[in-house]
Amino acid sequence: MKAPIALALAFILYPFVFSNAFYLDIGVALLLAAISASAWNIVGGYAGQVSVGHCMFFGAGAYLPLLVYHHWQLPPVVGVPLGIIVSLVLAVIVGMPTFRLTGHYFSMATIAVAELIRLVIGTWDFAGAAIGLQGPAVGRGWWDLTFRGELPYYFIFLAVLIVLLLVISTIERTRFGYYLRAIKAGERAARSLGVPVRRTKLYALMLSAAFTSIAGSLYSIKTGFIDPESGFGILVSVQMVIIAALGGAGTLYGPLVGALILIPLQTATNTWFGGGGTGLTYILYGGIIVLIARFEPGGLHEMWHRIAPKFGKRHAA
């Protein structure tokens, strides 16, 4: 229990040690990336059902808060539960038919439905079409969650991440968690042992969708702006997948480790290559994903467990 508390302490102290806006910005981006990748990890990592269209849940969560503000001047927070509801409906629409089939159908369906939603939102005036939506420029009260500095966002994001990791670590120890891992290891074997495969996969997707939606809401409330590309773009999904897979899909801290590596790396490449460097960042992403798939599908987590014993003392293994 010591390591998680030390980790939490490090995250709490970080903004006081690196109080400059640049580092705080990285911290906020890192926490958000860790939240959405951890949410992806529930269905993509633990259940082994690889979604490449999780941006549909992120986008739903991101759009609803700004939609309720834009049309009815409600505080954006009101949109958070609505975003979760929309995401749950989407999860059922995608999961119900595809979880009867092999995992490839699920992956294809996620990317196709995500792209469908992106195109529809891009032409739908109610949702701001291609231009997007804006949040309140100046907060009308604390309930608008429009803060001047990044610090309040940092702690809100951190709290959400801690809650999410607690939920996942609880799941790991319950029957549901064992079901998930049984399904990942072999669906047929799991079914023959009485695991309700389809229902378990669907519940995992719904839980994952709900938390991804919350991540989207946090993003749009903090940024105060959303458009089809930043909500439903394929790169939103890519980031979740790459961060979880890099750290170790299906492990509690994998996505956090992935975010700790990838977000600073991304900031660095963007700084080195300037504004035109975003393309290079995505080439790098693609390359990293291919290398993980080819050489280390278990991510750094598995690599560590293979390499560490060789360096450590005998009893460490």
């Binding site: 993509g44 990592g45 082994g48 059902q49 690889v50 490449v52 995992g103 490839h104 992956s107 997948v241 897979a245 899909a249 992403y285 693609g286 390359g287 990293i288 994903i289 291919v290 290398l291 993980i292 798939a293 080819r294 599908p297």
Partner: peptide
């Protein structure tokens, strides 16, 4: 694993 299969061509 499925993850490697899908990520390989996706990446």
């Amino acid at each position: 694993p499925m993850l490697a299969q899908i990520l390989s061509t996706f990446g």
